[in-house]
Amino acid sequence: MERYYEAELKGIQQDIILMAEKAIFNTRRVLELFEKRDRDICRQIIAEDEEIDQLELKIDQAAVQYMTLYQPVSVDVRLIAMAIKTTHDIERIGDEASSIAKRMLRLFERDELPGDNRSEMLGIPEATSIALAMLKDAVDAFIEKDVAKCHSVVDRDAEVDSLNHENFEGFLERLTSERDNAEALMELVLISKSIERIADHAKNIAREVVYYVTGEELRHSGKGPSRSERGVQG
């Protein structure tokens, strides 16, 4: 039986998907940016982030209102709990994408990006591709209530962590021989770190989806170890 207030809950679900799709779009544009090195893409990513922020406010407000008015239980209250936490993760993904766009703009404006070759960015584009796929899968898993897909997202986070670690080592090594490029190399280290954070947020979303679908809590459970638990640095 559909409840007369079902539309409110569906509205929250749809807004989460809309917000996540914007974050996916921006992450995909980051990848495009590494390829095309286009200032306009930077500006578009930065502008789009504002829409993501506004959606976070809208969803949080709707979630609190739904709790107040309808006192949800079971899968409904788990959806509301997930909504509040997941919007924060999606909002952070938007922020990371925006931060990458700003760093890239600075590099372009100073003409400091070392070389025109993708290899100059080491494993950043590859890590971005994985993070993007993780994010898309986490959102698909939410739509399809697919727990297996969530676990696959959680598992892939290690690949991005590893690439970020390699990037950090690689840029550090170059720093010794390319002193003039120090600022640019530092920007690239931080860009790599932002990609790693995007993957972390995708992993968080996947964990929240598992909680929403099954009630099972993956955080601090030994399932899907965190970076610090694996002792990964950088």
């Binding site: 039986m1 559909e2 239980v73 079971s74 899968v75 409904d76 209250v77």
Partner: peptide, 19 residues
């Protein structure tokens, strides 16, 4: 029972989807 009921009938009743 209210966060994660085992039975579908419980879920339907407590969440108002009964009937």
């Amino acid at each position: 029972l209210f966060m994660n009921p085992r039975e579908e009938q419980t879920e339907a009743y407590i969440s108002g989807r009964f009937g």
